[in-house]
Amino acid sequence: MNAIDLKSAAFRWPEMAMLFDLQVKAGKLLIVTGPSGSGKSTLLNLVAGFETPESGTITLDGKACASLPPSQRPVSMLFQDHNLFGHLSVEANVGFGIGPRLKFSASEQVKIADAIKRVGLSGKEKRLPHELSGGERQRAAFARTLLQNRPILLLDEPFASLGPSLRVEMMALLQQLQNERARTILAVTHHPGEWREIADGFVFIDSGRIAAQGRMDRLDDPEVSAALRAYLGVLRQ
């Protein structure tokens, strides 16, 4: 079953018209890559509901979503930055995954503590975001998406502002969480190579279209797409 199903989803910026057809099977992790301004983020925003398509359908987890507001879609999302509310503790930020409130029952508090433990932040529950490192902040945001418990997770370059070793660490965490309970993930990135180990496939976007897609090993296939090869910087031999 396809967890994400876009059929001729059309969207128009003044400078570019876009059209997406995309099917992602449940539990798969796909990376979305392509040049700046090609439409990667717009694709994510269409799925999340921050943009509404002019035409076409968007079916998420079996539910027609094209005209639903973001809050009613089975989607959680993680950004490069500003994922936490600066005036609230780790605990409170994570708690938002259960619901938009600050008071929780005893069993809910156990769930929150458990999520924090799973991302390795035990002991830092009371800290404020500015008292955490960049990696720790993203871990806290991860913990929240665990509690949100939605079948689809969208990642908009969530590791881009982290250093190389932290990125590796975060990938490992993501993989570990994925092993525990697989979600359908779309991850926008400029560094497809780093995802080889954990991604199931890639989508390459160019000028508002999906120009190529396939399994991760196809990234190196000379037959796939000249544009992809140019983007990746692979020299023609």
């Binding site: 809050s71 989607v75 999302m77 950004f79 930055d81 500003h82 994922n83 005036h87 938009p100």
Partner: peptide, 25 residues
């Protein structure tokens, strides 16, 4: 920042949640 407004939607904040967690600070 824009992300906070997106999060507010994703986290299903109502008007109270938006005021309390984004605007009030």
């Amino acid at each position: 920042p824009q992300e906070q407004w997106k999060l507010a939607e994703s986290l299903r904040f109502g008007v109270a949640g938006r005021v309390q967690n984004i605007l009030w600070p």
